[in-house]
């Protein structure tokens, strides 16, 4: 039995060693590649952080040579906060500003399950990062047992990691993390496919999201970093969304975090349909327009 366990451990360590190497070297894709591409660069001045609505809409070139975009598709506030924690641990936080795109829905308690499940995508950092470990263990008291297998940190992502590593390990997605979308929304879809909406039934705010925001703010304060939050524009929003946005804005104001909501009446650019890829994302024509607008609005905070 002891020999069998030793054999399992040996195999586990061997496989984990190979996969760890691939993970650290690979700069392509969503299985850690985007983060590694960023970590392999020189430290930037300004970092834009978020999900696909940053990856596809925020071109760092517009903001100068020292800006960078780090984004993972479909990730929410907990994931972004953990990512910042990892950057701090690896001493790779930007020098001046951290500009984070946060969805208004992330602040709804009803979305907590989705938010919490994101943390498993950072399971590679389980052993090295306390914040990641804390939230992974929150899901089950016995979760730590799975991590006695060193290779479990690559669970469910082995194929994508290996294919990214072998095929395109040096080809990071886009330029400095920016990857524009080509194509545009057609009228039929704009009517049929409504953008993300806040459910009107349950508008209770999420304590989890609040604690994430607090953690994000404390990291920035500790590192004397400007933290600015924004919400990128959507093609359409409903009444409940607007109402909840007001709460979200007040929460950020209370914490003295500058906030730019491009779905509010004052900031909404009302881009025409030709600028949209779908109801949530701007295309390669709309993204630069949004970049210019964001740059102009950010200047206000930096000048202050």
């Amino acid at each position: 039995m002891a020999l069998f366990l030793a054999l399992v451990k040996l195999l586990d360590l061997g496989v984990a060693g190979v996969l760890d190497h691939c993970y650290e070297e690979n700069e392509y894709g969503e299985s850690g590649g985007n983060l590694m591409a960023y970590l392999h660069q020189e430290t930037c001045d300004t970092l834009f952080l978020g999900a696909s609505r940053v990856q596809n809409q925020v071109d760092p070139k517009i903001f100068g040579p020292e800006a960078y975009t780090l984004a993972y598709q479909q990730m929410h506030i907990l994931y972004l906060t953990a990512l910042v924690d990892i950057l701090e641990q690896r001493k790779k936080l930007p020098k001046d500003a951290l500009i984070v795109q946060i969805e208004v829905e992330d602040f709804l308690a009803g979305h907590d399950d989705r938010t919490l499940s994101d943390i498993h995508h950072l399971r590679y950092h389980y052993h090295e990062n306390d914040y990641v470990r804390k939230y992974i263990q929150r899901q089950s008291k016995l979760e730590f047992l799975k991590y006695t297998f060193s290779s479990f940190r690559h669970n469910q992502r082995v194929l994508s990691l290996l294919s990214d590593y072998w095929q395109r390990k040096d080809q990071a997605i886009g330029i400095k993390g920016y990857y524009p979308l080509t194509g545009h929304l057609n009228k039929k879809d704009s009517l049929k496919d409504q953008p993300l909406m806040v459910e009107e039934k349950n508008l209770a705010p999420s304590p989890l999201a609040k604690s994430c925001l607090q953690h994000l703010q404390s990291i920035c304060q500790r590192n004397q970093l400007n933290l600015i939050v924004f919400t990128a524009p959507l093609y359409k929003v409903n009444k409940a969304y607007r109402e909840f946005s007001t709460y979200f804005a007040s929460e950020l104001k209370h914490r003295q975090i500058p906030y730019l909501n491009y779905n509010s009446d004052s900031l909404n650019p009302n881009y025409p349909i030709k600028y949209w890829y779908d109801t949530k994302h701007l295309n390669e024509k709309g993204a630069p327009q949004f970049g210019i607008q964001l740059k102009k609005d950010l200047k206000y905070y930096f000048n202050e």
Partner: peptide, 17 residues
């Protein structure tokens, strides 16, 4: 033992947890 170890590793790497 080697086959069972391989099975465990497959569960660890590809299993939905």
């Amino acid at each position: 033992g080697l086959v069972y170890s391989f099975l465990i590793l497959c569960i660890v790497l590809f299993g939905n947890d």
